[in-house]
Amino acid sequence: MTKRVVVTGASGFIGSHLASALTDEGYEVRAMTRHPDRYDGAGTPVQGDVFDPDSIAKALHGADAAYYLVHSLDSDDFEAKDAAAARTFAAAAADAGLERIVYLGGLGADDGELSAHLRSRRTVERILREGPVPVTALRAAVVIGAGGISWEITRQLVEKLPAMLTPRWVETRTQPIALPDVIRYLVGVLEPVEARGRVFEIGGPEVLRYIDMLTRAAAVQGETLTNVTVPLLTPRLSSSWLALVTDVDLTTARNLVDSLSTEVVVHDHSIETVVPGPTIGYDDAVRLALRQ
């Protein structure tokens, strides 16, 4: 059984919940963070920066497996940064002799039409898989949970706007997934031999348009959200609109909006044979996120 697990990005949205879940399962968790003195979550904090090979080597020394959960979405040159970080981490993981890397990436068809954000996630996945350490990759769309960027945008739009003028991307289909299900899958693929080196698509039980997510999130809270779609709202204008209405910074909003016109739906359900069990519906996922 895998004993010592490194969680990169342990202070982040997914990483903080994952570190807690792994600790509850009895794993020895090393919570890798750039600022271990500020860390107050589950596991033992260890200093590590994915752009610093020496710090990664120290964090991974003696570990059995690692979760790779970092990205640079708040940077204008995030594609180059994400690729460089992945190469550094893959080399350090090989030197440390890890048994497995588990990576959380993004859904989307490999048809050459991925947005820069999703293309970067897929590039990171490819770089990690090019190394000698077996990689288990999970691909997800919008994660519904308190603190997640996409969910916070949804929550704040519903909270602040009784009516919206929306761009065309609100008609794009996606398959949101509840945070507890993401954590269940991440923990569930760590041990099974049949998960080594494989790619799994994960999602909740419903395929929704973004406008459906907004109106149903409003309905859960007893509100009605009026929407008028305006085709002339370009990605640049709509990202500026998001940055104005929500507390998401402009760079992150711009990088996210570029992805919202890409359909992200689960087509491969093989994860259900490795980590079986029902997933949480969208309305219940919203209720859980609002309570967190």
Rank of each mutant, 00 (worst) to 15 (best):
V5S: 11
V7T: 00
V7N: 06
T8N: 09
G9A: 08
G9W: 00
S11H: 02
F13K: 07
G15F: 02
S16Y: 01
H17Y: 01
H17A: 12
L18E: 07
A19M: 09
A19P: 06
S20K: 14
A21M: 11
L22S: 07
T23Q: 07
E25G: 00
G26F: 11
R30G: 06
R30Y: 05
A31K: 00
M32Y: 04
R34G: 03
R34Y: 01
R34I: 05
D37Y: 10
R38I: 05
Y39H: 08
D40F: 00
T44W: 03
G48I: 02
V50R: 00
V50G: 04
V50M: 08
V50K: 10
P53E: 01
P53T: 00
D54A: 14
S55Q: 05
S55E: 03
A57K: 11
H61C: 13
H61D: 15
H61S: 15
A65R: 02
A65D: 10
L69C: 05
H71N: 05
H71I: 04
H71F: 05
D74V: 02
S75M: 11
S75W: 10
S75G: 10
S75F: 10
D76R: 10
D76T: 09
F78K: 11
F78N: 10
A80F: 08
A83L: 11
A84C: 12
A85T: 04
R87Q: 15
T88G: 15
T88P: 10
T88I: 11
A90S: 15
A91P: 06
A91C: 08
A92Y: 03
A93L: 06
A93M: 09
A94I: 11
A94H: 13
D95I: 05
A96Y: 07
G97E: 14
G97K: 13
G97V: 08
L98A: 04
L98V: 07
R100C: 07
R100L: 03
R100G: 03
I101Y: 01
I101A: 05
Y103R: 09
Y103Q: 01
Y103N: 12
L104H: 13
L104Y: 04
L104W: 05
G105E: 01
G108S: 06
A109N: 13
D110Q: 13
D111L: 09
G112N: 04
